[in-house]
Amino acid sequence: MTVQRPDSWKDQRGPFDIIGDVHGCARELEKLLEKLGYTLKSRGPRGTRTTRIAHPNGRKVIFVGDLVDRGPASMDVLRLAMQGEADDTSRCVIGNHDDKFLRWLMGRDVQVSSSLKTTIKETKQEKRKFLNQARAYLESLPGHLILDDGRLIVAHAGLPEKFHGIESRQSRAFAMYGETTGQTDDLGFPIRRDWARNYTGTPTVVHGHVAEKKVRHKNNVWCLDTGVVYGGKLTALRWPEEEIVQVKAKRDWFPNPRWN
């Protein structure tokens, strides 16, 4: 399966529901989709369930990436996203956690962090056929998507205008990780530059990646990662309405010293 072109959905005008970092929080995702008006049809027990989604008004879901890691049900989230891709009811861009899990599935030498361990643990209950399908799906995900005739850009960590429509190694790295200084803070987290501070592009850019307790919106850039896996909220941005819809986390699933 080849990587999707960033403009593969350029002529899709929505309406869309853009959902922030899910990180394996499948129950919260289902609850948010229901709140957004989607019907969910699930088959199989939790942990191996397949869920199909549909909206009576034809709305479609766009995931900002980081489907996996840290939460309790990464495989259920993957299955829902993969089924949505097959049914043409959702699209997703690659997140840095999705990419690292993909590299692990490919047998690459990756550092198995505490975040990745939660996903690897789930794979032990899976059949090889599903893991091969998951690998093919993750390999196909683009670094960013161009939607609504170019009025909307979705990338996991955001994307400055100079990279819009370009699927290169440099643009893909920025889309997954943002712009870092190469230094870390006193908690060991990478120090990132605020690229959105200087954004003057016409397209609206929607991303996740940096968990904050409130939705951040400035210079036509939205950040939707509101830390559901840390006990925060799972957030969706309705497009073109620019309306925020949220559900609270069932619990704190993974420790984060910044959220104490």
Rank of each mutant, 00 (worst) to 15 (best):
M82H: 08
E30C: 14
A73N: 09
L40Y: 06
R52D: 13
M75D: 00
T51Y: 03
K31N: 13
G47R: 13
L33Y: 06
L33K: 14
N57A: 15
D66K: 11
G37A: 12
S74D: 05
T50C: 06
V64N: 07
V68C: 06
R49L: 10
G58T: 11
T51K: 02
V61A: 11
T51W: 07
G44I: 07
N57R: 14
V68F: 04
S74H: 04
H55L: 09
F63A: 03
F63V: 01
F63G: 01
A54V: 03
T39G: 11
G47W: 07
L36H: 07
L40M: 10
L36W: 06
A73K: 02
T39S: 15
L80V: 15
L32W: 01
K41R: 15
R46H: 09
L32M: 12
A81M: 14
T48C: 12
I53Y: 01
K35P: 02
K35S: 13
S42A: 15
R46I: 13
T51Q: 02
I62G: 08
L36M: 09
A54Y: 01
K41E: 14
H55F: 07
P56A: 12
R59S: 09
H55S: 09
F63I: 01
G65M: 11
A73T: 00
S42N: 03
V61K: 09
H55C: 02
A54F: 06
K35M: 08
P56G: 09
S74M: 07
G65P: 08
K41D: 14
L36S: 09
E34G: 01
K41C: 03
T48G: 12
K60H: 11
K31T: 14
I62D: 02
V61Y: 07
G47M: 11
D76G: 02
L78R: 03
M75W: 08
I53A: 13
T48A: 15
G58A: 09
E30M: 07
L32D: 01
L78A: 12
R79H: 05
R59Q: 14
N57V: 00
R52E: 14
V61M: 12
D76F: 08
R59N: 11
R43M: 11
T48E: 15
R49Y: 03
L36F: 08
P45A: 10
L40C: 13
V61E: 13
I62C: 10
R70Q: 05
K41W: 14
L67S: 04
G65S: 05
T50H: 13
